[in-house]
Design a protein around this nucleic acid. Structure first.
Lengths: 122, 122
DNA sequence: TAGAGTAAGTTACAAAAAGTAACCGGTATG
DNA sequence: CATACCGGTTACTTTTTGTAACTTACTCTA
């Protein structure tokens, strides 16, 4: 894992870090998880599921996730316009990894919350 | 995974989401990964490994990660003061999960970078 | 037939988070 | 005698987010 980093002469930028920071961003992760649950979602549906996200940030994240190859966007020339978002095969393989982490979080978040509370009282 | 969310009546806040956003934050993840590699690290060493982080943000993240139970801080009353950071058992169990994700990222980041480039040219 | 609602965003502005650089007091190093 | 280390903190600037209004063209409701 750290083998590729020469930590005595740290590089200006680590590409893995860059890629990971996009994919594990809170909103990006939620978008990908919901698209893993529902194969196809339109903008406004997605916005309802990814509770609390703004149009602006949803729009930004969708563009970045599309550019990075996790999701695909299909626009239909109807009136009103219909746009469908779905995971690519690559995105599908990522969501499986992400789900493992999320499951760990679901199991362990009570411990974190308990810890947080205890820490606040001391 | 989604069973706990009633997406027709979305909750004001999802605790899992809150916990996960702290733990999967870019800087937090890097701190935890380096502490998984070196059992004990002092502030300035950590700062060198977590390349690019500022004192301010490192200090903030260490406090939050300590409060959430991932790391522990030991200060020795020497002169100059010595402070050692290390993973708790809980943090250790988390870093194992995080490493799996990181390994996936290492394997797959070339695909993402290739995709990104292709997308930029169209 | 006026009014509201839907669709997928964009835009201008405000608020929050992150980055930058200087500083602390005491000690060891050159 | 000046410099660097130790583990941070503080004031200030820049970047990122969030908020709310707006867009175009059609459909549904009263």
């Amino acid at each position: 894992m750290f083998g590729h980093i020469d930590y005595k002469n740290p590089p200006e930028l680590c590409p893995v870090r860059d890629v990971m920071s996009v994919a594990s961003d809170q909103w990006s992760a939620l978008i990908i998880l919901w698209l893993g649950y529902f194969p196809v979602l339109r903008f406004n549906k997605l916005k309802k599921f990814v509770y609390g996200i703004s149009n602006k940030v949803l729009s930004q994240r969708l563009k970045v996730l599309e550019a990075d190859g996790y999701i695909q966007r299909k626009a239909y020339a109807e009136v009103p316009i219909r746009v469908e978002y779905s995971l690519t095969d690559f995105g599908q393989s990522y969501v499986e990894k992400l789900l493992e982490l999320t499951e760990w979080m679901q199991t362990n978040s009570p411990k974190v919350l308990a810890n947080r509370e205890k820490y606040g009282l001391i």
